[in-house]
Amino acid sequence: MSIQVENISKTIDGRPIIQDISFEWRPQRIIGLVGRNGAGKTTLFRTLANHYLPTSGTLSIDGVDVQTTPVARQKLFYVDTQNNFFDGQTLAQISALYAEGYPKFDTDRLKQLLAEEQLPFKSRYRQLSKGQRMLFQILLALVSGTAYIILDEPFDGLDILVRERIVGRIVNEIAERPTSFLISSHNLEELDGLCDQVLFIKDDRLVANYDLENLRATAKKLQLVFPDKHVPAVVKDHGKLIKVYGRVLEVYFDHYTPELEAELKAAQPVMMAPCPLTISDVFRVKLGDQRAVMGGE
């Protein structure tokens, strides 16, 4: 039970926009897709959703090839932000349309969630603010009854309060239902603490695919302060320096074992405190300077 993306490529106007993208999207996971603006994130989503015909590659959902069985796409939810047909309609009308398309669509739950968010069911889509529109699209996704949900830049341009509400909804959904998310962002920090897996896309290719759960099981980030400026050999040999604040070192250890911990303690640090491992840390350690990928340099 998973989505298998295999060697998806898309060329537009003679220019490759995404090339040979492959990854597995397992259930009940939140995957972050990170890349700078124009890296090909939306093109990948539109190709997965069959808006664009892929130049090559295949997509199978729960073992079913969507090319031969397109109805399998009903397990995948993606709202394109450019949907103009929403504009003239009320939220109730849009909801009725989605209810016709998705067999497990839960209209009652949508009404309840809209009431919680103080969005009137009868209000017109065009009257909503940008944040409210995104919130409504996410609520549509949550009640669609689909196993796989794509959210394209859901936090883009939203204030912190709306962002927190959206994150809360996503986390609750994962906890309560067998749903999984593929969320894109051009900002690493937005996805910190939210994703189980992160994909990096650069120059139209997938350059990294990290399972944060696996990483967190073996890797550790520590804040270390040693009595003098000399960095002990154990840190140099086994760790990767992430940041330095005066004499405080933030160090990432890829394979943190009890033996390594004993060696570190033997170096007599003044302070040795574990820190949460973030996507930004993984990014720095695995891919080097953030600007190299996010800045496209």
Binding site: N50, H51, N83
Partner: peptide
């Protein structure tokens, strides 16, 4: 095309 309704239907699995 202009309303992107084709995309909506294709996303639902319509041929």
């Amino acid at each position: 095309r202009r309303s992107h309704y084709y995309e909506f239907l294709l996303g639902l699995g319509a041929r």
